[in-house]
């Protein structure tokens, strides 16, 4: 199990998540190895199916990095993303998968540290949880 390196797909909203990722790099903060960063204009663009497909097609966890609530450039994109996560959580519970595999993190452009810490914590959590048993083999 120690060699298990969880794959995380990190959706980053262009207003906060993506700049926070850049900030993390600029600060030379080290990221867990197996992270795919997906850049979207707003967390509101992240469809529920992307969250599910990520898990189905091989990810062990999914993180959505969105703006703080009430601080969305597009008014409610982050809230829509949060609501879609709730849908995904219901689905995961129904099929017996840990809903913690999909999580949303609200941050700001300068939250490089929070970005990396969230991913590290998620990576550790997923290591304990073990590989996603529902991914395509």
């Amino acid at each position: 199990m120690s060699s298990f390196d969880p794959k995380i797909i990190a959706f980053c909203c262009d207003q906060s998540g993506y700049p926070a990722a850049d900030m993390a790099g600029t600060l030379k903060l080290k990221l867990p190895r197996n992270i795919e960063i997906v850049r979207v204009p707003c967390a509101g663009r992240i469809e529920t199916i992307y969250l599910l497909k990520a898990l189905e097609k091989g990810a062990d966890g999914v993180l959505v990095f969105a703006c703080y609530e009430e601080n969305c450039q597009f008014l409610r994109g982050n809230l829509r993303a949060k609501a879609r996560l709730a849908y995904a959580h219901r689905m995961l519970e129904g099929i017996g998968l840990e809903k913690e595999r999909v999580e949303i993190c609200h941050l700001a452009t300068n939250s490089g540290v929070k970005f990396v810490e969230t991913l590290r914590r998620k990576s550790e959590q997923l290591k304990k949880m073990g590989p996603n048993p529902a991914k395509e083999s």
């Binding site: 199916i49 189905e56 849908y87 689905m91 129904g94 099929i95 048993p133 529902a134 991914k135 395509e136």
Partner: peptide, 17 residues
């Protein structure tokens, strides 16, 4: 169509599991 896609993905995962 959206719900079809979501449910299909959920079913596949549940059975894969």
């Amino acid at each position: 169509e959206k719900e079809v896609e979501l449910l299909a993905s959920g079913l596949r995962m549940a059975r894969q599991k």
